[in-house]
Design a protein around this nucleic acid. Structure first.
Lengths: 180, 180
DNA sequence: TTAAAGTTTCAGTAATTTCTGAAACTTTAA
DNA sequence: TTAAAGTTTCAGAAATTACTGAAACTTTAA
């Protein structure tokens, strides 16, 4: 394997757990993305020097993250795996999937415990904080669940805008106010 | 401890590792946020039933994340800990800190290996992918590093806009084009 | 129907991460 | 200067998470 590709795949392994999966799955994901052609489970197992069983689990996991798709070669019944969509789409999927794991459970807990009311000063403060956190997570969830609908081009445009978004928002407000 | 508060702190513990720290630190963070008054290391140790040493490490870590601040009570030389800033500011800090750990290292690797050029088809494809990933991460990094400059109110406004951002961007484009 | 080709599962083991508690260290005030 | 109050560090133990490989399972085609 080319040393640059090797370095990249190795790095994906090291970062794997920070990205929300584990070393093996990070490496697998990196390898599949960087490869020109779809890879079979055995090719992955050989390339990364990990057991066949582990590759199988990794494939299941990457499918759960919607990051890979199955391909077939004519006259070959093995399954081959390729990235599903372009890099932007994959990034959005990781983002969404992580939101599901990192935010949704908290949102649901907060909805449950927000109901009853406070019996003293400390509880009133706690209630208030829980409310603020709920509001924050709810906004973020709504926002990010809308993002994928924008499509990669618009998304890229938004990203490149940076804090310029602030100015655009101001512009919008001014227009709406003038209209009144 | 009030059962709602207990449930919240416990949940923060369970989510801790998904949020980028560990169980203890998650609980500590939840407890400090939900408490009306600043807490001493011993109070934290007692409330969460964890060793004093672990609390000490946790405090250091939460300080590295810029999530807590030190407070003093008059006539008491113990240190007390309180959340630093409001919930939105804390969220932005977690976001930034995670970007540093989850994106920056990859960006720096990509900058290193992007230089040399391809010797065959597979390498050309890999080079192309590396380039795309670099572009994506670079955009995201620029964007998120600009976000905190907007201040919590604007940030909240942006979040509430959802995919409406797409429409606002279109509006901006139309205006700029008309001006030509 | 069968055996070859291929895949998945999972119990046990290995590796990693987190936690404890005692010892070392620091600061304060008497 | 000293001892009491408080904090930090870190080696080893505990808990968690990831990985292997062999056995069980599934699919295909002859």
């Amino acid at each position: 394997m080319n040393p640059k590709i090797k370095a990249f795949v190795h790095h994906c392994g090291e970062m794997g757990s920070r990205w929300g999966f584990n070393r093996t799955i990070g490496q697998m994901c990196g390898l599949i993305v960087i490869s020109k052609d779809p890879l079979s489970a055995n090719e992955i197992s050989d390339a990364l020097n990990i057991s066949r069983g582990n590759v199988s689990m990794g494939i299941k996991e990457l499918q759960a993250w919607r990051l890979i798709q199955i391909r077939h070669k004519p006259g070959d019944r093995k399954e081959y795996y390729a990235p599903s969509g372009d890099i932007w789409q994959m990034a959005v999927r990781v983002f969404e999937e992580r939101r599901k794991r990192e935010v949704d459970p908290t949102l649901s807990l907060l909805r449950d415990i927000l109901l009853d009311d406070a019996k003293n000063e400390q509880e009133a403060h706690a209630q208030q904080k829980l409310h603020e956190i709920h509001e924050l997570l709810d906004s973020v969830t709504r926002f990010t669940s809308e993002l994928p609908k924008m499509g990669p081009e618009k998304l890229e445009q938004l990203m490149k805008l940076g804090s310029g978004v602030g100015k655009v928002l101001d512009m919008k407000d001014r227009l709406l106010n003038n209209r009144k």
